[in-house]
Amino acid sequence: MKNDGVTKGSVALLGLGEMGRVLAERLLDAGYPVTVWNRTPGRDTALVERGARRAETVREAVTAATTVVTCLFDHASVRETLEPVGADLAGRTLVDLTTTTPNEARWLGGWAEERGIEHLDGAIMATPSMIGAPEASLLYSGSAEAFGRHRTLFEVWGSATYDGADHGAASLFDLALLSGMYTMFTGFAHGAAMVTSAGVTAEEFAHRSARLLSAMTGVFPMTAKVIDEGDYTGPGQSLEWTATALDTIARASAEQGVSPGPIEMTRALVLAQIEAGYGNENSDRIYEELRAG
């Protein structure tokens, strides 16, 4: 163990981008001893003024705490930051909140295990302004024992959900949910481009979109049931009908001088399933085209 003499419950936070700074602020608010490090100098000034300890090096930060939290740019930056201090991390808990792929999280979990480091991968389902508020949600996977011991700490940031021992599980849920989010925002931007071309404000369009999209999410459980059962022959909008609707939207986009790119993406999935002979089946069948990869 490398943490003899280190204050119990102490946290080192590596990475002080917008999210990292807020994570550190909430820990300070809750009374945790916090050491901070960032590759670019100067981002820790306000945190140090509030009581955080500044570390000049990664090694200094890691050896000052029992729990090390990373919130960095990507998987490559995590490796670049942590690999030189692997021996110093032994006996400590590493919580990586960097957005990475499931396999990258699994790699880090294996690397940590080989060095006697307890590892949890985490996914932040919130914007920086939401951290510490009831709507903030964070997902974790990896060591169940570490999750149990640190749950009180995690709940400083938001609700904490444990997704199992697979180190990549939290990342998988994170990126799957973000896929839906980014697709939704792209669809909103496309619709806004259509209506603003006719002099309607994006704000007015946002009010209408929010009502419709909120109602549509209520259909998710029914769609999920169809997908899980694999039976697309029941009632619902057929692929043929959907293709016609998408063609109409694409033509309307062109008429307004707007790129039909988001619609063409969905249309390609629909047409592929029609060409495979499933035109009369439910439009939820595009799931099968996505699965076919």
Rank of each mutant, 00 (worst) to 15 (best):
V258P: 00
V69E: 00
A169Q: 08
A112H: 01
G180R: 08
L246F: 10
E289F: 06
A268Q: 15
E49Q: 15
E104I: 10
K8M: 02
S283G: 06
R92V: 06
T7G: 01
A206W: 11
P235R: 11
G110W: 08
L82Y: 07
A206Y: 12
V219Q: 13
A76G: 12
W111I: 04
A24C: 11
I131T: 13
V48T: 12
M222K: 14
S209A: 15
V258M: 10
E203T: 14
A206S: 15
T217N: 08
T66A: 08
R149K: 15
L120Y: 05
D4K: 13
T242F: 08
D96P: 02
M265D: 06
A215T: 15
G109K: 02
R149L: 09
M125Y: 04
W37C: 00
V85R: 09
E240W: 04
A250K: 10
P134K: 13
V258L: 09
Y278V: 00
N3D: 13
S259W: 02
I131D: 06
E289Q: 15
M194S: 10
E155Y: 09
L23F: 10
W111A: 08
H75G: 03
R39Y: 05
L16N: 02
A30T: 00
A192H: 08
L108C: 07
A123H: 05
D88M: 00
A165K: 11
R21V: 10
K8V: 04
G132Y: 04
G116K: 04
G142F: 00
G31A: 00
S10E: 03
T266G: 02
N282G: 06
G20N: 03
R267S: 14
E49G: 13
R208L: 12
G20Q: 03
F173I: 10
V34I: 07
G9W: 03
G257Y: 09
L120H: 04
G164T: 11
E264W: 03
G158R: 01
P235C: 00
T81F: 12
F205H: 14
Y140L: 06
Q256E: 11
G199E: 02
T217L: 14
V58C: 01
K225V: 02
L14T: 05
V78A: 07
G132F: 02
D228T: 12
D163F: 13
R54W: 06
S283V: 09
C71G: 04
L269I: 06
L271Y: 03
A136G: 05
L138E: 09
N38E: 08
E204T: 13
E204G: 12
A202L: 07
R208P: 01
G158S: 02
A90S: 15
T93V: 14
S77A: 14
E275D: 14
A206L: 15
T217D: 06
I124C: 07
P262V: 11
